[in-house]
Design a binder for these strands. Sequence first.
DNA 1: ATAACAAATGCAACAAAGTTGCAAAAAGAA
DNA 2: TTCTTTTTGCAACTTTGTTGCATTTGTTAT
Lengths: 141, 141
Amino acid sequence: MIESKVTELLKKTQLSVTDGRRRILELFLQHEGALSHGDIEKKAGEKFDRVTVYRTLQAFLEKGLIHSIPSSDNSIRYALCKDDCSDGHHQDDHVHFICNRCGNTTCLEEVVVPSIKLPRGYSAQQVEMLVSGICKSCGGA
Amino acid sequence: MIESKVTELLKKTQLSVTDGRRRILELFLQHEGALSHGDIEKKAGEKFDRVTVYRTLQAFLEKGLIHSIPSSDNSIRYALCKDDCSDGHHQDDHVHFICNRCGNTTCLEEVVVPSIKLPRGYSAQQVEMLVSGICKSCGGA
DNA sequence: ATAACAAATGCAACAAAGTTGCAAAAAGAA
DNA sequence: TTCTTTTTGCAACTTTGTTGCATTTGTTAT
Ligand SMILES: [Mn+2]
Ligand SMILES: [Mn+2]
Ligand SMILES: [Zn+2]
Ligand SMILES: [Zn+2]
């Protein structure tokens, strides 16, 4: 069950398990694809205060439960991390895909971000790769 | 002179040349690195209305004068395009670097975004690569 | 189970960012 | 210059994000 998975994850990351956190984590587990703050606010319904959603995402981020995905439309998305992300140390080196038709953002876990050679003087700490186009579900044609 | 370059660019893109547009384009030409809406608002001073800045960036974007750079902090940056970007068709296939020390975002024109193989069903229309770390100026020591 | 303590939540009051319609002003064309 | 079109500024508004504080809830130890 998702119920137990949720509690397990919260326990593992040393977060006290509250209704809000359970609900939001549940949303991530159910929903294939990334969620923005706004998405969560809508999906979680009236039950939780907006501020709580902000703080919960913040906490999840810090604990390495979720990672954030940059965007070109001023609305960061978040998605669950794999097990190897822990307390502050993220290890999400996969490509993200943004569908121009359905608008969904997906983690392409199987596609690793290629390494890259930077000009002299620059040193990289993190690399993000964002691909936009038509996703599998929308591809149809 | 920058003055004439500015006017030339506006004429070329069929934008009527106004004080606001001149000023903002000037900022882009002077400033090495990308600018956010907020940056521009500050740098342009009290002289221009916030709404005008929004509309100007929008216009520049559509005409292929500038391109936008995704971010993880809900503040899109913009930078000048090269000559080969025109009316709606952008051709900015370079890597963007975000410095964690000085906060500047730079176009690494000389670093081309590597191509990538997507899983079956996905088709790419655009690829963005964002590298964060320490930039040339901050690298020092 | 209860009490004590620590942490999370909701609320209120803000601040900041973004949007829209419209009248006035400025650009471009004739 | 005059006419026409486009851009601008303003006002009013919506949405998004932040902060402090009192209350509620979760956790741990008795
Ligand atoms: Mn991801
Ligand atoms: Mn660029
Ligand atoms: Zn899609
Ligand atoms: Zn720097």
